[in-house]
Write a protein that binds this DNA or RNA. Structure first.
Lengths: 120, 120
DNA sequence: ATTCGTAATATAATACAGGGAATAACGGTA
DNA sequence: TACCGTTATTCCCTGTATTATATTACGAAT
């Protein structure tokens, strides 16, 4: 005996992207925050890009964009010195990481809930 | 007397995009659903594209993609006839529109809540 | 038979983002 | 002083995505 006509409907995945905008367009996004984390880890923009596989040019654009859009910069960089130069995360940089990951986690939960809710 | 140091912090906008994926990539998104609505209104793919400013080629690819990813097509089209041809929305097409807008509305509420929550 | 407006499809043209290469500045180190 | 690895910046090239163009098919109306 067959149960009530319950079609084995196709499975759809609910997806999305989130980011935070300032006056100059994107301020924080997934890639930007990962970049911040790597800069923190390697204390270098170039080191971060190598670990991600991102071009230095691109990373530098992103850092410039983030710094210019926040009241206080998220990354401070310097040239010369023992290792030729380096970069550090400011306290605001650390805060930005935490802030975005919380937003991101909430979003993932939201998507999961919606996908459950809207089974066709 | 000044209240506790509450800086007039910059205002950031929490933004995002959502879509629904099938096996062949994107199934429904904002642009696709608007396209469906216009096809319904004009009973024509070409008419829909004119109203949106989208190329016919692009619209046709989107319709093909949506139809191929759902069990039953969302749009049926025919050539010839009084007006040279036309296209109609199927019941599943109508359902898809409602489904996505609900998802979209929930998402907008989510973003608003998050933006309020995370005032820096 | 001809015309008309659309669907359906292929091909050409264009725009645009992203990456690579090149270069200068910088300041410890050897 | 010469060297090194990094930051900082400009210029150019290429792959990709989008748009435009062109062509064929279709069926009703005239």
């Amino acid at each position: 005996m067959v149960k009530k006509g319950k079609t084995t409907s196709k499975r759809y995945r609910f997806k999305g992207r989130i980011w935070i905008e300032g006056e100059g367009g994107t301020f924080l996004g997934y890639g930007r925050v990962v970049l911040l984390e790597r800069i923190k880890k390697y204390e270098s923009i170039a080191g971060a890009t190598r670990s991600i596989g991102m071009s230095y040019r691109h990373a530098w654009d992103l850092v410039k964009s983030m710094n210019s859009q926040s009241e206080k910069p998220l990354v401070t960089a310097f040239t010369g010195g023992r290792r030729g130069g380096g970069a550090r995360l400011t306290p605001d940089g650390e805060k930005a990481i935490k802030l975005f990951w919380k937003f991101y986690e909430d979003f993932r939960n939201f998507l999961q809930k919606e996908e459950m809710k809207f089974r066709i």
